[in-house]
């Protein structure tokens, strides 16, 4: 009988252990219905490996592109510098910036004494052509910027006789005409005062003209209407 009780006790113990195993298993299966099969895990593992490889490739690509970007940026600053210089040059020749430097001042005025009775008044006044000739001569002598009575001469500037006035940049300009030109003063003056040149010709017409060299002239920028 005592043999039999030990047998039953051992069966009971074993059954208890079995119960524990079953319960634990039951809880595990219940916790995540369906569970994750080993195949699924392997699938995910291969996916992970592949994605890691892709990530490495992409990282390499990022480094490569960053390198290229740096190269481009290095070149960019130089290009910007060159473009700035170009822009400044263009702005100056377009007359959008004030120009200072050595140059000449040419002042033209109408003849003071209108002698010659019987002649209609205004015959000997300065005409647009005279100013145009002066401007042309200055450009030809290498002037960088020219203004007449504060009106900057640019590509679209007109010099046009409008009754008693001359219109420059559609503004009325009255005598005395003060023509300022920035450039090499010696060249400008010598080209104007050439024997038989423009100044002599204008003087012969009776126009009061003076030419002066200046070390520091300021020519205003083109004023938009």
């Amino acid at each position: 009988m005592s043999q039999r009780t030990t047998v039953y006790i051992s069966i009971m113990l074993v059954a208890a252990i079995l119960g524990i195993m079953l319960a634990v298993q039951f809880r595990v299966v219940n916790r995540s219905p369906g569970g994750i099969s080993a195949n699924r895990a392997e699938e995910l593992l291969t996916d992970l490996k592949q994605i890691n490889r892709e990530q490495e490739n992409l990282k390499k690509e990022i480094a490569d592109l960053n390198y290229k970007l740096n190269q481009v940026n290095k070149g960019k600053s130089e290009a910007i510098e060159a473009l700035r210089g170009e822009l400044n040059k263009v702005r100056m020749s377009a007359g959008l910036v004030t120009v200072t430097g050595p140059g000449v001042e040419v002042v033209l005025d109408n003849p003071k004494n209108e002698t010659e009775p019987g002649m209609p008044p205004g015959l000997f006044i300065i005409r647009d052509e005279d100013l145009l000739k002066v401007v042309n001569e200055l450009w030809g002598a290498g002037a960088e910027a020219i203004s007449i009575n504060g009106q900057r001469i640019i590509a679209t500037s007109e010099i046009r006789l409008a009754a008693p006035f001359i219109n420059i940049n559609t503004r009325r300009v009255v005598p005395p005409y003060q023509v300022l030109a920035v450039g090499n003063p010696d060249t400008l003056v010598s080209s104007l005062e050439l024997p038989g040149g423009l100044v002599e010709y204008l003087r012969s017409l009776g126009i009061d003209i003076t030419v002066e060299k200046h070390d520091d002239l300021t020519i205003p920028a083109y004023a938009e209407r």
């Binding site: 208890a16 079995l18 119960g19 195993m21 079953l22 319960a23 809880r27």
Partner: peptide, 11 residues
């Protein structure tokens, strides 16, 4: 009874 005890412990 052994199984029952085991289940109780396991849960």
């Amino acid at each position: 009874t052994g199984l029952l005890i085991g289940l109780l412990i396991g849960f």
